[in-house]
Design a protein around this nucleic acid. Structure first.
Length: 692
DNA sequence: CTAGGGTTAG
């Protein structure tokens, strides 16, 4: 064999840094160091086994630079995700400055378009696309095509992606898949599914594992369990059930469709679980309120030697928040700091949220203040957290600071600030925020509209809520639900019912689980027992909806308020789903009102078994004993609270004086103090909200 | 020499 051929064959055999270095020195010795073909082979080897700098050196030493040589270096940088460098290199390649302009080929364009995608260089990518008009051969290359489609879809330009796709007479499965996942990633889930069925039914193209991943993701986002299960069946028939990414996507589907038991079964069957598998299952538990299982799994994962990544800790922190488990949350915080995960905004934000939900706002603020870059999600976690901790008066100030630091709110953050303000109940602030919503063009968003309705309702201004509601012509189900709830919290159950039936009769919007929460609780607040029970039956029989534990707790509450404690107990005994704490809580509260210590103790026993660290429930129980004069039992409970070191949220009261809100820790003196201020200032409204 | 995909925070 000739020397050069031998070296080429040696390239193929290289599988380590050592063998690469050996080969390199051999090439130098035998005088082939300027051989273009050999160097093109050597560059990727160097980049993988040695360093990208060494690969660059090889390139720099070449007297002549062919398009192949450029491509190998470009690909090396792209493999190392050095996108900026890739882009700069490409510009050097095609620039005429030193008279060494090299024309890019289809390989070059696929790489560079990928760099544009990652760097979100929309304008530059479009220029490249324009360049292709004159180069049909490159343009119709399938690899360039998929890179272009991916570029447009990741820049959020699906119409352009579709234009590229349509230029291909015979798109292959990758091109079809790029479109399906493009629609999926841009939130057009139905379109993704429609595109998939066009591909399979009309074109007869067999989807591969990647296509199915995108399809399953679309099902998960649409919370479409039925279709998802069909796809799962298809996956098994095609023999893809060991494809990890695909199974992980299916696991996520079951997580998002509240099919915890199915998810558990699938999880146990998965061989070679990776960090995504574990994270998905942890997230599944957190998402479905099974925080204890989530944290158990998190520890099991670590014990089994699977290293959690930033996403995993976010899922675990969510579980801590759900479980109100401050200790575990702090432990994970330590782990996060050790690994340096807290540099990621999502992790720090999850920490803020966790501390807030565990009622430790100081620790949350501490995390927030240490964050180097704060995005809108972090700000909103902070301001919602304050509201959650009884300091809603701080939220609006934080919102202002956020705006002045140049962060643009999105629809979700508007919903959150409106919700935080509704905790406060200041009418004037509601009007201001309403103005902001209108000026910023958020008023066509159904969720924002619903939040406004809720805000006005909670500020005591049903008239304004109705105005917002009636002002929206195309009423979404969330708007109906919000308005029904609005009447409900004012005790105007009859009007809630009227509105509910108006919706059923005249609107295209169909009541969903949330609507039934609103109408049932409206009935409960107004004591409309028979009407409420009728609605509950309607939900099951006419709408085929499965009542969640929230619906059950309202029905228990409804029965409890009207004194039917035994019937409430009966309902709980016949529940087809696990009885969650708040259902027992509703029963306990009813027992307190109606002095039913016997059932009350049953409720309390179950309740404290499920949530042993919730101070509120102990207080409810102790109040029940107090009403009944069972001071011994009461003392026991109080001691228990002390022993466990349970935290009760600090009650705060607020006064608005000349547009500024002042807060006080609630005590007996406060009421007279507020009254004094009110008297002193006469025209000012005084709001006192004492919390348990 | 090359492509499309899975878990996360308000």
């Amino acid at each position: 064999m000739k020397g050069r051929e031998l070296l080429i064959n040696l390239c193929k055999a290289c599988d380590s840094g050592k063998s690469t270095a050996k080969l390199h020195s051999q090439i130098l010795k035998t005088g082939f160091s300027h051989d273009g073909f050999l160097t093109t082979k050597l560059i990727p080897l160097c980049a993988t086994f040695s360093s990208i700098e060494d690969a660059q050196k090889l390139f720099d030493e070449m007297p002549q630079r062919t398009v192949y040589l450029w491509n190998s270096l470009l690909r090396a940088y792209s493999k190392h995700k050095r996108w900026k460098k890739t882009w700069v290199l490409f510009k050097n390649m095609v620039s005429d400055e030193k008279g060494e302009k090299t024309l890019p080929d289809n390989y070059t364009l696929a790489i560079v378009l990928k760099a544009c995608t990652e760097l979100q260089l929309l304008k530059q990518g479009k220029i490249l696309h324009g360049y292709l008009w004159k180069h049909e051969k490159i343009r119709l290359d399938l690899f360039v095509g998929s890179a272009l489609i991916d570029f447009y879809s990741k820049c959020g330009e699906m119409s352009d992606a579709s234009k590229v796709f349509n230029k291909f007479e015979k798109p292959d499965v990758v091109l079809w898949t790029s479109m399906v996942s493009g629609y999926e990633q841009n939130g057009y889930f139905e379109k993704a599914i429609a595109f998939f069925s066009r591909m399979v039914v009309e074109e007869g193209i067999a989807p591969d594992r990647v296509t199915l991943v995108s399809l399953v993701s679309a099902c998960a986002k649409l919370v479409n369990l039925k279709l998802g299960r069909t796809v799962h069946g298809f996956v098994i028939r095609r023999g893809f059930e060991n494809e990890l990414s695909l199974v992980n996507a299916l696991l996520n589907l079951y997580a998002k469709t509240d099919s915890v038991t199915v998810a558990e079964k699938l999880f146990k069957m998965i061989e070679g679980k990776d960090v995504v598998t574990w994270s998905s299952m942890i997230s599944c538990y957190s998402h479905n309120g099974a925080a204890v299982e989530a944290l158990k799994l998190f520890n099991e994962m670590i014990n089994k030697g699977c290293l959690p990544n930033a996403v995993t800790v976010v899922c675990a922190l969510q579980a801590c928040a759900v479980a109100c488990d401050l200790d575990e949350g702090r432990r994970i915080h330590e782990l996060v700091s050790e690994r340096g995960f807290d540099l990621q905004i999502s992790v720090s934000t999850a920490l803020i949220d966790m501390y807030m939900k565990c009622l430790s706002p100081d620790e949350a603020v501490n995390v927030f203040s240490k964050m180097p870059g704060k995005d809108v999600v972090a700000w909103v976690a902070l301001l919602s957290g304050y509201a959650l901790n009884g300091m809603a008066y701080k939220s609006i100030g934080i919102f202002r600071v956020m705006l002045s630091s140049g962060i643009q709110p999105d629809a979700v953050s508007m919903v959150k600030i409106l919700a935080s303000s509704s905790e406060l109940g200041f009418f004037r602030q509601a009007v201001c925020l309403h103005g902001y919503v209108t000026r910023s063009g958020f008023d066509n968003n159904a969720f924002v509209g619903a939040s406004l309705i809720e805000l006005y309702s909670k500020c005591g201004s049903l008239d304004y809520a109705i105005k917002v509601f009636e002002g929206i012509i195309d009423k979404d189900v969330v708007l109906w639900s919000a308005m029904i709830a609005g009447f409900g919290i004012h005790g105007r159950g009859e009007e809630s019912l009227k509105l509910f039936y108006r919706m059923v009769k005249s609107s295209k919007a169909k009541p969903n689980n949330v609507t039934f929460v609103s109408i049932l609780s409206a009935c409960s607040h107004a004591g409309l027992l028979s009407e409420g029970i009728e609605i509950f039956h309607m939900m099951v029989n006419d709408y085929g909806l499965d009542p969640g534990s929230q619906h059950y707790s309202i029905v228990v509450d409804l029965l409890g308020r009207t004194g039917e404690v035994d019937k409430a107990m009966d309902i709980i005994n016949r529940m087809p789903i696990p009885v969650e704490p708040h259902v027992w809580g509703a029963l306990l509260a009813a027992c307190r009102i109606h002095h039913n210590v016997e059932i009350g103790e049953v409720a309390a026993k179950n309740l404290l078994g499920l949530e042993p660290n919730h101070a509120g429930y102990y207080i409810l129980l102790s109040n029940m004993y107090a009403v009944d004069g069972k001071w011994g039992n009461l003392e026991q409970i109080r001691t228990l609270i002390k022993e466990k070191g349970l935290k009760k949220m600090i009650g705060q009261s607020m006064v608005e004086i000349r547009n500024e809100i002042h807060s006080f820790v609630a005590d007996d003196k406060l009421h007279s103090e507020c009254e004094n201020i009110y008297e002193l200032l006469g025209q000012l409204e005084v709001i006192i909200r004492l919390q348990l």
